[in-house]
């Protein structure tokens, strides 16, 4: 059926293919090209001209201490926040699946609802809840300044966790529903309790779902933008280079588009490598 359906395949693939090329591939190439140029001026006040600069921008990226601090910051954020979020999601999914919980429909919906809240809106809302002079929870905000330099990162981690736990829970839960029930019966006959079944059967069966949610979480963490951008209004501890994406925005508002493009390229590469490595690593461990 290869040759006969060529025109049909072309019809199905072309519209997406063209848009994907225009708005995914071309921008990536364009960013790389832009990052290789630099602006030169003849004298201090002379006209600016764009000249090929080779890796000049990248040298600047690699020697840019705040940028690497921001990468470190989001990695630290991810190392703590992603396991907490996915751990909670897994526990809730297992509880929903265990038969111990009544009113599953309600809990599923209640936990999932925050996913309907855009990051910007969630950050504004939590920003109010954290602010000592605006928050209704004065008992908390009086004892710990959640917007201080030491705590604000974790205050944001809470916002991200709040949004995404339910979403990840649903993904894992629907993978659990797909597990054939005969397996559980066999485990029961062998005398396995609920914990044993969860640990030895359920979790291994839903590992692909956990891998998928982890990859998306890694990508999301490195791209952190809406929350810190909003939190700049609430906390002076959040600088304009607080996360890598804020650095990109900051460089493009100077404007230094060539440098901003180099930041974008490095960040995209780092994200791609990290998520790809994670995928390969888990595949080698025997997760399909």
């Amino acid at each position: 059926m290869t040759k006969r359906h060529f025109s049909a395949v072309l019809f199905f693939v072309t519209p997406f293919g063209v848009l994907f090329a225009l708005f995914y591939l071309v921008p990536i190439i364009y960013a790389v090209v832009q990052s290789l140029y630099t602006v030169e001026r003849k004298g201090t006040f002379g006209p600016a001209t764009e000249v090929f600069g080779g890796l000049v921008q990248y040298r600047q990226v690699f020697s840019d201490a705040p940028f690497w601090q921001s990468i470190e910051r989001v990695l630290l954020f991810g190392v703590v926040q992603v396991p907490v979020m996915l751990g909670l999601a897994l526990v809730f999914a297992l509880l929903l699946d265990s038969g111990l919980v009544k009113g599953r429909r309600f809990f599923r919906l209640a936990f999932f609802l925050p996913y309907a809240v855009p990051g910007v809106v969630a950050a504004i809302m939590w920003g109010y809840l954290y602010s000592p002079n605006l928050s209704p929870f004065t008992a908390v905000t009086a004892t710990a300044d959640l917007l201080s330099p030491t705590l604000v990162l974790w205050a944001m981690a809470n916002v991200v966790t709040w949004i995404y736990v339910g979403y990840n829970m649903l993904i894992i839960y629907s993978a659990l529903l797909a597990v054939p029930t005969e397996i559980y019966e066999a485990a029961k006959i062998d005398g396995a309790g609920a914990f044993r079944t969860a640990w030895s059967i359920k979790i291994p069966m839903v590992l692909p779902a956990i891998v998928l949610t982890t990859v998306f979480s890694i990508i999301g963490t490195l791209q952190l933008l809406a929350e810190p951008q909003v939190f700049k209004s609430f906390s002076s501890a959040v600088s304009s280079t607080y996360t890598p994406n804020l650095t990109v925005l900051n460089a493009s508002s100077i404007p230094n588009f060539h440098l901003a493009a180099a930041f974008s390229v490095v960040l995209a590469l780092a994200t791609f490598i990290l998520s790809f490595t994670f995928l390969k690593f888990t595949q080698r461990k025997g997760v399909q």
Partner: peptide
Amino acid sequence: GGVLVPATALALPLFLM
């Protein structure tokens, strides 16, 4: 591969284009 490319990385080059 496009799934793994973060959409935010595309925003700046798209703006320039």
